[in-house]
């Protein structure tokens, strides 16, 4: 898009795509005040609008016998509510987290699907900062929920003192558990989403521009170039699976962290 990827296969030498292929700061779409608005920002907003409009339209005239749109909305809502919310958090506390989980799942799903939608073809969360923001939100939520329920000290004890371990091991385990449950969790949560979207899109760029380069190179490239494009198509289908799976995993882990923060001591 915007000549970034095409420019790489021009000239005699093949320039492999890298993190630079994801940098839109040179080609902002438009400016608001002094702020340059780039494509990922617009996509993020578009994703939020699509999710809002879909669920608003599905819920607007709810009838006892659902119409087609209402049925689709209810099926989508029920899937996240039952398989992620109720099964993980437990039937006692899950209700108040369902709106967050449903919104999160479909927001992620739409934004990941942008990678495969023609004319957009860029996964929003292959920009790491966007994934960090979402993980930061989830960090605030699960810690906030835990502190609200157990108090600050009780919550820290719940998260960092493992149960069923002899106190001799505490000096070793308590810092580790604290480090892993409070500090590393949001980082891996964000990086998982970012790295999957980033790596998938990088592969697609590599196979498409590489195929073009091989075809221009001639010789064996007449065979290898089209083969690379066939692989690019195959990887596109793999990406569709990964997009869904990452949205699911991100939401599932959010639910697990919340249920871990709510858990009673054994």
């Amino acid at each position: 898009m915007f000549g970034i990827t095409m420019a790489e296969s021009e000239g005699g030498e093949f320039l492999a795509p890298g993190p630079n292929s994801f940098d839109f700061s040179e080609v902002p779409l438009f400016h608001i005040g002094g702020l340059a608005v780039t494509k990922p920002m617009v996509q993020l907003l578009l994703g939020a609008v699509i999710v809002f409009v879909f669920f608003y339209a599905a819920a607007r005239r709810a009838t006892l016998v659902p119409g087609r749109l209402q049925f689709a909305g209810e099926a989508a809502y029920g899937m996240v509510r039952n398989s992620i919310g109720r099964d993980i958090i437990g039937s006692k506390d899950y209700a108040k987290f369902v709106p967050y989980l449903v919104t999160l799942f479909f927001f992620l799903l739409i934004n990941n699907a942008f990678a495969s939608i023609p004319a957009i073809q860029f996964p929003t969360f292959s920009r790491a900062s966007m994934a960090y923001a979402l993980a930061g939100l989830s960090w605030v939520i699960y810690n906030g929920v835990g502190i609200h329920k157990h108090g600050l000290l009780g919550y820290l004890k719940l998260q960092s003192v493992p149960s069923g371990v002899s106190p001799v091991m505490y000096p070793l385990l308590v810092p580790l558990e604290f480090f892993s449950n409070i500090l590393v969790r949001p980082a891996t949560l964000a990086l998982r989403l970012f790295a999957n979207m980033f790596a998938g899109h990088l592969l697609l760029i590599l196979f498409s521009t590489g195929g073009l380069f091989l075809l221009e190179y001639g010789g064996i490239g007449y065979v290898a170039g089209p083969l690379a494009w066939v692989l690019a198509i195959a990887i596109s289908f793999l990406e569709l699976l990964v997009q869904f799976l990452q949205a699911y995993v991100f939401t599932l882990l959010n639910a697990m962290y919340i249920s871990g923060a709510l858990a009673d001591e054994h």
């Binding site: 990086l191 699911y248 882990l253």
Partner: peptide, 20 residues
């Protein structure tokens, strides 16, 4: 399923730290 996906996510975290 949820246990498998949790285990998958934890194992995958290592690969992700690697790529970062």
């Amino acid at each position: 399923q949820s246990i498998a996906i949790l285990g998958f996510a934890l194992a995958e975290a290592l690969a992700i730290i690697g790529i970062a």
